[in-house]
Write a protein that binds this DNA or RNA. Structure first.
Lengths: 224, 224
DNA sequence: CTCTGTCAAGAGCAGTGCTCTCGATATGCG
DNA sequence: CGCATATCGAGAGCACTGCTCTTGACAGAG
C-alpha cells in the first residue's frame, strides 16, 4: 500500500523527467522536475539517491522501450520473410529514435562524463540486437547465408565472440556483415538525429530504406 | 602587438579548455578554466562572449584537426592506390578519434542541448568527407566504379545532391555505397568510443580494418 | 495510545554561467 | 611628449544547480 504510493511517485518523477529531457536535453535539472511536480527539490532524493540514478532509470527505460519496439515490429512480420524482418528491425530503430530523439541521444550519444552506466543496463541494451541475432540464426538454419573464407584469424576470433552471443550457428562471414549493417544502421540514425546529414541529405527516409535494403542483400538475406 | 597578446590569450584559453575537456568531458566549466589560467572568471568573457562561443571555437578546431589528419594520411598514399587511400582515410578518422575522444564526442556525439552549431563550422566539417569524394572522383575517372540501375527516383535525387558536393562524376550507385561506408565508419568509431561495443568486441582494431576493407570492395574500389 | 519509520519542507553549502562596475594600463593621436 | 581612448583584469553580485542535513508532520504497527 505504502509501496504503491512510492511506485506511483517514482513513475511520476520519471514521466516529468522524460518531458524535461524532451525539451531541455540531457542536462536534466532535478529542481525543475521537482518544481513541475509541485514538490521541493530535496523530496526527489527520497526516490532517487542522485541525479545519476534518475538518469540510469531513464536509460534503462529507454533501452527497454527501444527493445520492445524492435521486438514488436519484427514479431509482426511473417517468420519466413527474413529480409522483411530485417527491414522491420531497422525501421523500428529509426522510427523510435525519431520519436524519442533525446532518449536516443541518452543511450547512443556521447556518454555523460563522469557517469559510468551500471552493468544492469546490459541486458536491456542487448534486447534489440538479440532480435537481429534471431533473424540471422533463422537465415543460417535455412542455409541462405554464405561464409567469408578470407577472414584473418584475429578478426575471426572476435566475430566468433560476437556471434556466440546472438547467432551461434551463423557463419562468421555473415556475422561480420551483419555487424557492419548494425553499425551502419545506428550510424545513419545518429547522423540524421545529430545533424550530420544537414547540407547533404534533405529527406533521409528513402535513402535510409534503400541503404538498409542493400545491407539485407549484402548480408545474404534472400531478396523476396 | 596588443592583438598578438590577445591571440596568445585566446589560444591559451583554448588549450586549457581542451585539457579540461579531456578530463571532465563536455560539461566545460569556465570558472575552472579561469582558475587554471590564474585569472578571474569574468576575464574569460573578454575573449569569448559566452561558454557556447568557446565550445564553438573548440568544435571548429576539432573539425579542422580531424580534417587535417585525414588529408595528411590520404595524401601520403600513392595516388593510384585507391583502396589504400580509402583505408588511410578510415584509419585516420579512427586514430584521431581514439587520440582525442572528447573532441570527437564534441563534434560527432549528441549535440549540446540548446546549442546550435553556427553555419561557419560547415566548411571545416566538410574537409574530411571531401577527401573521400576525391578518391571516389579519381575512381570514377579510371572507370572502376559501377552504377546501380535499380535506384528509386527519390533516392537517386538525394544521392545526386550528395554526390554533387563531393564527387559529381561518380555514378550514383557508387555514391550511395560510399555514403553507406562513411556512415558505417563513423558508426563504428562512435560505437567503440561510446562503449557500445563492450561485451561484444574486445579488440576492435582488426575488426575495424576488416570491415573497412570489405567496404572498399563493396564500393567498387579495386582490390590491389 | 505510543512508538517507529517514512515523508516533505526548508536552510544551507559549494559550485555554475553571466553581468556590471571600477580602477589600472597600454595604445594611438595631436 | 601628453592626453583621450580603448582594452583589460578584478571583484561583487544574481539566479541557478546538485546535494546534505535537520526539523516537524503523519501513517501504520504493536
Amino acid at each position: 500500500m505504502r509501496a504503491r504510493l512510492r511506485a506511483e511517485m517514482t513513475d511520476e518523477i520519471k514521466v516529468i523527467a522524460r518531458r524535461h529531457l524532451a525539451t531541455d536535453g540531457a542536462n536534466l535539472s532535478l529542481r525543475a522536475v521537482a518544481r513541475d511536480l509541485g514538490v521541493v527539490s530535496s523530496a526527489i532524493y527520497r526516490y532517487f539517491p542522485s541525479r545519476d540514478d534518475l538518469l540510469t532509470a531513464l536509460i534503462l527505460d529507454a533501452y527497454n522501450a527501444l527493445g520492445g519496439s524492435v521486438e514488436a515490429a519484427e514479431g509482426a512480420v511473417d517468420r519466413a520473410d527474413l529480409t522483411g524482418r530485417f527491414l522491420a528491425i531497422c525501421h523500428a530503430v529509426r522510427d523510435w529514435a525519431l520519436a524519442n530523439p533525446h532518449e536516443y541521444a541518452l543511450i547512443y550519444g556521447s556518454p555523460v562524463p563522469g557517469y559510468a552506466a551500471p552493468s544492469d543496463t546490459v541486458p536491456a541494451a542487448t534486447r534489440a540486437v538479440t532480435v537481429l541475432g534471431a533473424v540471422l540464426e533463422d537465415a543460417a538454419r535455412v542455409g541462405v547465408l554464405h561464409d567469408d573464407e578470407r577472414l584473418p584469424a584475429d578478426v575471426a576470433a572476435e566475430l566468433a565472440r560476437v556471434g556466440a552471443g546472438v547467432a551461434p550457428n551463423a557463419p562468421l562471414g555473415a556475422v561480420g556483415r551483419a555487424l557492419g549493417s548494425w553499425v551502419q544502421l545506428f550510424g545513419f540514425v545518429s547522423f540524421e538525429l545529430f545533424g550530420q546529414l544537414n547540407n547533404a541529405v534533405d529527406v533521409p527516409g528513402p535513402v535510409f530504406d534503400h541503404q538498409m535494403r542493400a545491407q539485407a542483400a549484402y548480408i545474404g538475406l534472400p531478396t523476396p
